[in-house]
């Protein structure tokens, strides 16, 4: 398949490893991966703050750009950006674009489109999974990532308490209501710590920023890794 990688701005600037890893996994599975040039931001911050027109403007720009070479699929290592474009945009402001039917979050692309669960990765360690809200409730992604993780050699998946409770990031919420956001993050970090896992993983980079921020402040040794980074690791790999 000809796949265009959608690299959301927060991935580009804060967690480039996730995009690299996603590309690596897809290529390893025999697909052609391109990164269309000119990508900036899908406009999700504006959407969530209620500035729908600013969002629509950026979303259309990005969708056109991603669709320029008419790829078979567009894949992003972020559930929230995909949900903003594919679910929230169409519902709230009638956003429509021919690409939306071919736009996928990374893990759902693997499990639902490619039907893959074992990508040949090796990642020794105990991992606990955090369900990012937009992936979970917007895109209905719950079991897929867990199946992918269970198939990773050396990896033990342990569930934390309430893996589906919000980590408290919530976009601008994190800085507009920092105390509440931090309280939620604390609760999530406690659940992560109590799970006994050495790693916490998610398909949402912004959740990882929040969880990692709290974990590090608590002096925790638990590390936050993106799902793609786990799946890309293994023989000859450099992820993880």
């Amino acid at each position: 398949m000809r796949i265009a990688l959608f690299v959301p701005c927060h991935v580009d600037l804060l967690r480039p490893g996730a995009a690299r890893a996603a590309a690596r996994v897809l290529r390893r599975l025999g697909h052609e991966v391109r990164v269309p040039e000119g990508q900036t931001c899908c406009g999700q911050p504006a959407l969530n703050a209620g500035y729908f027109r600013d969002f629509a403007c950026l979303a259309r720009r990005l969708l056109d750009l991603l669709d320029r070479d008419e790829p078979d699929a567009v894949v992003a290592p972020s559930g929230s950006c995909v949900a903003a474009l594919r679910v929230t945009g169409p519902r709230h402001l009638g956003l429509s674009h021919p690409l939306l039917d071919r736009l996928y979050e990374f893990s759902e692309f693997l499990t639902r489109v490619l039907g893959v669960t074992d990508v040949g990765a090796r990642f020794p360690g105990t991992v606990t999974w955090h369900d990012g809200c937009h992936a979970l409730r917007g895109l209905r992604i719950r079991e897929g990532p867990r199946r992918l993780l269970r198939a990773v050699r050396g990896l033990t998946l342990v569930e934390m308490e309430e893996p589906d409770e919000c980590c408290g990031f919530g976009g601008t919420f994190a800085v507009k209501m920092p105390e509440v956001s931090a309280a939620l993050g604390e609760r999530k970090a406690r659940a992560v710590a109590a799970s006994g896992a050495a790693y916490v993983s998610a398909t949402e980079p912004s959740c990882l920023v929040q969880i990692e921020g709290v974990l590090r402040r608590r002096g925790s040794a638990v590390r936050a890794v993106h799902l793609a980074e786990i799946l890309a690791s293994g023989e000859g790999g450099d992820g993880g």
Binding site: L14, P178, E212, R217
Partner: peptide
């Protein structure tokens, strides 16, 4: 402080993804 009062700040990547070169950067295809 809005962020850092209770959390460590994420540091912006050097290089960012779009600045990477090589097999798995944006330039590869």
């Amino acid at each position: 402080a809005a962020w850092t009062a209770a959390r460590e700040a994420p540091r912006m990547a050097r290089p960012a993804f779009h600045e990477m070169r090589g097999d798995h950067g944006p330039a590869a295809s």
